[in-house]
Amino acid sequence: MPGNPTRRSILTMSNPALLDTIRYVETPEGITLKLRVAGPMARALAWGMDSLIRYGALWGLSMGLVLLGWAGLGVWLITLFLIEWFYPVVFEIYADGATPGKKALGLQVVLANGAPVDWPAALIRNLLRAVDFLPAFYGFGVAALLISRDFQRLGDLAAGTLVIYRDPPVKTLALPPGPALPPPLPLSAAEQQWLIDFAERGSALNPERQEELAALLADCTSGLRGVAAVERLRAHARWLVGEHS
């Protein structure tokens, strides 16, 4: 399920008033999914890569077909037509909603409710590329992408599709080994997640910053200072992920 980059649970709902690039989809079971919609830059790069692949393939084909004369030209034109219109459709249906360019950037096409893209949607969104391309070089497409809330171009709006970031493989950053201690008071899901993130991402922060953050939670560390406070929070995090010593 699409979520945040690090290990994250859907329990930690973020504040909806804050500006973010997430589309919330509520399932009939009352579970809220987070779809991280992808914006102009990533999609432009993916499109560029796909263009290189398409035209590279056509160029390679023309090298071979030129030997066949007029018949070769005919075959080449038919291939051009097919690739130009159906390259994205076929990949979106048969390769998890991602053309090679999209796959390289970790993007995926899904329906607006998060379900895999189906034939009608894939056909519509890619046939309407012609409209998005108007007046030239995706002028309307880029404008629609920037204006619409979920970065949808006109084809996406018509087909009811989104381009989202597929979840990166789950990163289970190892907690540094050490003792585990229960936190001194019950914590909500979001609060537990903050403690665990603190312990997991510790290596990316410099020691002074870690101590500064730990000092914010003086109530939780029962007045410990400096490195000891950091260590105490880590011990709580270890306990929260299930290490009990």
Binding site: P5, L18, T21, G39, Y165
Partner: peptide
Amino acid sequence: AVAAELRPRNPWEATDLGAAMLRRW
């Protein structure tokens, strides 16, 4: 007082936040 969700993102997602900020303001 920050008005955007500051979570660690991948760089492209960060540029998307830029686009969202531009849209908001």
